[in-house]
């Protein structure tokens, strides 16, 4: 098994684990961590692609590496925004889970200024 294949399989496993967490965990913080896990998997895949697609004479294709750097910055910004929202939600509601059955919304309805 070549390095690139190994990294690709690891990336796929990370994506799978992350997707499971993103879909199955009700807590927002866990979902966020799961999203970062998916992100890591995708970036690892980009790395494997860079290695496999290397033109002759290069150690690796530089384009996917540039994409990974941009992707990291975007994922970092997304995480920061989401954490800020989680913190504000915890302050405002005292809970951070995202149950679709909305006990939070039915509680919040009477508080709404009417």
């Amino acid at each position: 098994m070549s390095d690139a294949t190994l990294f690709g399989l690891c990336g796929a496993a990370l994506v799978g684990l992350g997707l499971y967490g993103l879909i199955c965990h009700p807590g927002a913080l866990r979902k966020l961590l799961a999203f970062n896990l998916v992100g890591s998997g995708v970036f690892l895949l980009f790395g494997a692609v860079a290695r496999r697609g290397a033109a002759s004479g290069f150690g690796g294709d530089p384009v996917p590496q540039a994409l990974v750097i941009t992707g990291l910055v975007v994922a970092f910004a997304a995480t920061a925004l989401a954490v800020a929202l989680v913190v504000r939600l915890a302050q405002a509601a005292g809970r951070t889970d995202l149950d679709p059955e909305p006990p939070a919304r039915s509680e919040a309805t009477p508080e709404r200024p009417s």
Binding site: A78, L89, A92, P102, R112
Partner: peptide, 13 residues
């Protein structure tokens, strides 16, 4: 408000 924060977080995820 708490309910709009929750809506925003769900949208973001």
């Amino acid at each position: 408000r708490a309910d709009t924060l929750q809506a925003a977080l769900r949208y973001l995820l």
